[in-house]
């Protein structure tokens, strides 16, 4: 999951406590008729809170996600692939910029988001805590993680918060290059020598569990979940997005003669749904909470980037600067 709206079902008090019911009704009516909510509009506290968390997580995912892929920039096979990978990684950092801006319109400053990322208070997509030990891993990431990201982003771009939808529209326009580039790299290896095929198969085997984790655990149905759907903060269940992903990409993977490491994976022709082994959700929780193979390195790299350039930012910060919340 890139960024995910989620209300703890054990939360005792009503999330609507203290809200102005008349304003709430007008707000919900606006969303129901397909209107977007804009930064200065009235909104329930929980709507703001969920969106900040979701967009912020998404922004962190983009910026941290550029690290596993960046691993192979210096050793990309050939100049064209090196240029393409640099462009893709730059795009991802640009996506983070757009998303931080969208979250900022809800009132959280960019400094606070960066601080919360580095301190571990804010999360980012779990998949980026795994390493990319070979070039083939970077190919699998660019194809399949970006494919998952596209499903998530296209879905969320139909949501109710204007600035997030607009950022996602811009992002999705760039993602098609990422997907094609990743597919191209995977196909090249999968149709290549025995060694190349083996390399891409091993990368797929490594990445399949994180890919299954990507959309998050199955959502339990809850009153809170319904509210997030009604507010168009959450646009599809995690399982629906996972099914959509499998529907689109499992046949393409099989088509290349690659094996997916799940003996139970098959499409049930009666229900039209994919059946599969649930990935290890305990591992998912453990990694999200800091105990993955690369969590410490990812955050240390991010922290160092902020630290080592701070003196430059201080030197160019002018007099009389005054921050106001961005408009849209």
């Amino acid at each position: 999951m890139y960024g995910n709206a989620y209300i703890d079902p054990n939360q005792q008090h009503s999330i609507l406590e203290g809200e102005d019911m008349e304003k709430l009704a007008a707000f919900e009516a606006r969303i129901a008729q397909g209107d977007k909510i804009e930064p200065h509009d009235w909104m329930p506290k929980e709507y703001r809170k969920q969106l900040i968390r979701m967009i912020e997580q998404h922004a962190h995912s983009e910026i941290i996600g550029s690290l596993p892929e960046g691993t192979w920039i210096t050793r990309a096979p050939g100049f064209r692939r090196k240029l393409a990978l640099m462009a893709k990684v730059q795009d991802e950092v640009g996506h983070a910029q757009l998303l931080y801006a969208a979250a900022e319109t809800l009132g959280k400053r960019r400094e606070s988001m960066i601080n919360d990322l580095i301190s571990g208070k804010s999360k980012y997509s779990n998949v980026f805590n795994y390493p990319a030990p070979t070039w083939a891993d970077s190919a699998v990431i660019a194809w399949l993680i970006d494919a998952g990201a596209i499903i998530n982003q296209v879905t969320n771009s139909k949501g109710s918060y204007g600035p997030y939808c607009r950022a996602l529209d811009r992002i999705c326009a760039e993602e098609s290059f990422h997907l094609k580039y990743g597919h191209d790299n995977v196909v090249f290896l999968a149709t290549g020598t025995k060694v190349q095929r083996q390399m891409v198969q091993e990368a797929l085997t490594r990445w399949w569990p994180p890919i299954m984790h990507f959309f998050g655990p199955p959502d339990k149905s809850s009153v809170h979940g319904e509210i997030l759907m009604r507010w168009k903060v959450k646009m599809a269940s995690n399982d629906d997005m996972r099914q959509q992903f499998m529907n689109m990409y499992v046949p393409k993977i099989w088509d290349l003669g690659l094996q997916i490491p799940d003996p139970n994976l098959r499409k049930n022709e009666q229900t039209g749904k994919w059946e599969y082994t649930e990935p290890d959700w305990n591992e998912f929780k453990r990694v999200i909470n800091g105990d993955g193979p690369c969590n410490a390195e990812r955050l240390a790299v991010r922290r160092t980037a902020e630290e080592r350039h701070r003196w430059v930012r201080r030197a160019i910060l002018g007099q009389g600067v005054e921050y106001v919340t961005p408009l849209a």
Binding site: E111, I114, N115, I118, R310, R313, L317, V321, Y323
Partner: peptide, 8 residues
């Protein structure tokens, strides 16, 4: 942690 105007 970053100060308030670190990001301009």
């Amino acid at each position: 942690p970053l100060d308030q105007l670190d990001q301009f």
